[in-house]
Structures are given as structure tokens and as C-alpha cells.
Design a protein around this nucleic acid. Structure first.
Lengths: 214, 214
DNA sequence: GTCATCATGTAAGCCGTTACATGATTGC
DNA sequence: GCAATCATGTAACGGCTTACATGATGAC
């Protein structure tokens, strides 16, 4: 499901497919490497579902389709004046819709039931768009999954099962899983602290608020 | 590619599909969870490629198709005597062929070029069938991949990129990758030691040190 | 005789990939 | 004007999943 990272990126600013892929590859690295062959169909699906729309008219505040590269503003304007026939090959900038934001939240909150590292990493990368409560839920579900995984690994670790390579693999898996668990515990603790802090400052005098929401 | 684990398991003993799946699920856990919908076609493919064959005739030393469960030997023999029409639904035990052993080695030695944890784990689980040299090659390729990955992760770690969740994710990824690297270093060291030990014991009688080749 | 389990398979569909085809823009 | 890159798409294919269909065996 690359819907999630697409919506996540578009939730920050409108982008066109090509640029989207570059960001997906760059900022999310191995987490969400996408090929055009799956990106464009995904965009088409999302548009059909009204989760995104082409930002053709008057966007929230951006200039109309500034090019990616180093082209000067003058040249771009001239080009636009000369010929702006909407050939199918001009780039299409997409903007997230209200429905898209809903979908993003749904995707972030969805519990696939699977124990998938990639899935969690992807959600984490965009969990800032969740409310604190939902974020803690996400983290705690992850912790539960990791706990199950650790139990499974330990079961496989039993007596003399497997050769020494397999045994080493399982031992390392055990260690890695424990590392994941420690990490998620830290995330949960930090989240609880942040929530407590926010509650405290709200209670104090509606002072300052630390959490960015948009 | 579940060809590798199938051949790996069959390289130890002949098995039929159902039993194969159970072992795949049990001994390799999340590493190679398979559904029947992919297992049976895979077996058919492997048989067509002459990598495995039905163990119908005279196996290396096993009794003809002993059942999985707790059925007594007498009852089984009686059943076989009564009716052994080869209906399509009787179980089919597969045995690896010489070609299959070649294929297994090829799959273990193949360098997909991808940086895939699962792929390596699967190879490790059956790398005992490789010669020491090839095994060290496998480990060193893995180390190279992990080193590249670490560099990539560190590049993403740069300045103030991303929100705190993404940053935490990357930091944790860095830590995990370092853990993988330490582990693979240990594996390589152990492998070199084992090779040296083998060479030494050969040298004790032959008075000459050479590279282990078989 | 019937239920749970063992056992083998097929069909439809999903989601991704690579390879290919096409067109627009810009720098030189 | 020509190559490099930007940009959007389509086609074919691969491998895995779920759901379904079928039949054999053993326990009771």
C-alpha cells in the first residue's frame, strides 16, 4: 500500500508524480521505493476515489505549477503565455482533499493484524498527523505485536533445534526484537510525557503548546 | 522465491507438500510462511524442472510413504494391501534430484543484488550445504550490503531532516543496522576460525596447509 | 457414519515489478 | 538542433494470498 506515503507527502504540499517519486525514494529510502509503474496507477486510483485532485485552478497559496528544476520565473511565464495546451504529457500537480485526509487517518489507524516492520515504519513516518491518543494506540499495538514475536522467537530457540547457523539467526532475531521493544517503550514513554506536559500547561494557564498539528 | 526453502528441506529428507508446509511454518516461522496456493504450484514447477521427483519407487532407505500421524504400521500395511489405487488425492512424497541439489547451490550462491534481510536469513538457514569458501562469500556480500545500508541511513540522518518520529526511526534503524553488522562480523570470524581449524587438523597429518575445497 | 484432520489442488485477484512508449523542457 | 532530463503513462508478467473444491483417513 503506497497510498499511505503518497497521502502523507501530499498532506504537506501539492506535488506531481515525478517529484513525489523523488521524495519517496529520498526521504523514505528503502522504506518506500516506488517504480513509476505502480506510482501513476496509484495516483489514478486515489484521484478516482476523490482522495486527491489535480491542483489546476487556485491553490492555497502557491504559484501555478512552478517547475522542479532551475528554470527562471520569467522563462516559465513566457512559456505559459506561448502555449499552454493541456497535452496529456504536461505535469499534473496533485493536492490532497478532505476525503484524502480522512483516508490518511484511516490508513494510519488501521490495524492490518500483520506483524510488519515496514508497515509500522511507514506509519511512524506520518504519525504526526494522528491525535496523541491514536498515536499511543498505534505504538501500543506495535508493542503487543513485538511481544508476540519475541515469544515466537523464543519458542523457536528451544533446545538443540537447527544447525548452528539457524541457531545464530534465531538468537540474533531475539536480540533485534528486544531492541525494537526497548525502542517502542521509549517512544511510548516520550509520548506519555508529552501528553502529560501538554495537559499540565493547559491546566496551568493555557500557556504555550508544544505540539504541531498541521 | 520459496524454491530455496523447499529444496533446502527436501535436501534432508523426502517429504510431501502438507508436511513441507508444516515444517516451513514451524522451523522457519515468519521467515517462510507459505500458503498451499503457492506451495503446490511451486512443487509442480520444481518437478517440471526436474529438481525434484516423486519418491514412488525405491527410496534410499525409507519405508514406502509412512503416514504423518500416529497410525500403526500394521494398519498402514493393511490399508496399502486393500486398495492402493493412485487416486489424484493420495499424498505425493517428493525427493530432491541431483539437478535439484545443483539448483539449491545456485540459489544459495546467487547474488540478487538486493538488500533483503529475509533473503539472507533464508540463505543462512541452509548455508550449511555450501562449501566453506562460498559460505564466506555469502557472508561478506551481506556485510557489504549492510555497510552500504548504514551509509544510506547515516545520509538520511543528516541535519534537521524530518520530524522527531522519523528521526527516531532513522536512529533506531542505524542502531539495528550496526547490530546486524556486528553479528555478521562474528559469523565471518567464526567461519574463518573453523576453516583455520580444519586446515590445521589436515596439516597435522599432511604437514601442509591448504584451502578447504570440499 | 460422521467429524476432524490430512492432503492436494484450482481460480481469482492484488500489488508490485521491469520494460517499453511517448512527449515536453532546457542547456549547450 | 540535439542530448539529457523531466514527466506521464501502458503492457506484460511474477509471485503470493484468499477462497474454494475435492477427496482420503482415522477416531469414536
Amino acid at each position: 500500500m503506497l497510498e499511505l506515503p503518497i497521502l502523507g507527502l501530499l498532506n504537506e504540499e501539492p506535488l506531481h508524480g515525478y517529484e513525489l517519486k523523488k521524495r519517496l525514494d529520498a526521504t523514505l529510502g528503502s522504506l518506500a521505493g516506488v517504480s513509476y509503474g505502480s506510482l501513476y496507477p496509484a495516483l489514478a486510483r486515489l484521484q478516482k476515489a476523490a482522495a486527491i485532485e489535480e491542483a489546476g485552478g487556485a491553490p492555497g497559496g502557491g504559484s501555478p505549477m512552478p517547475p522542479t528544476g532551475s528554470i527562471g520565473g520569467e522563462a516559465a511565464a513566457a512559456r505559459l503565455r506561448r502555449h499552454l495546451r493541456p497535452s496529456a504529457r504536461r505535469r499534473k500537480e496533485y493536492r490532497i482533499t478532505e476525503r484524502g485526509r480522512e483516508l490518511l487517518r484511516e490508513l494510519l489507524e488501521a490495524d492490518s493484524g500483520a506483524d510488519d516492520d515496514r508497515d509500522f515504519a511507514l506509519k511512524l513516518a506520518f504519525c504526526r498527523y494522528l491525535e496523541p491518543e491514536a498515536r499511543i494506540d498505534l505504538f501500543e499495538r506495535r508493542r503487543a505485536r513485538l511481544t508476540e514475536r519475541l515469544a515466537r522467537v523464543r519458542r523457536a530457540l528451544r533446545p538443540g533445534r537447527g544447525d548452528r547457523y539457524t541457531r545464530s539467526l534465531i538468537e540474533h532475531d531475539d536480540e533485534t526484537t528486544r531492541g525494537h521493544l526497548e525502542w517502542i517503550e521509549e517512544l511510548i514513554a516520550a509520548e506519555r510525557e508529552a501528553r502529560a506536559g501538554a495537559a499540565a500547561s493547559r491546566g496551568a494557564s493555557t500557556q504555550h503548546e508544544g505540539r504541531a498539528s498541521t
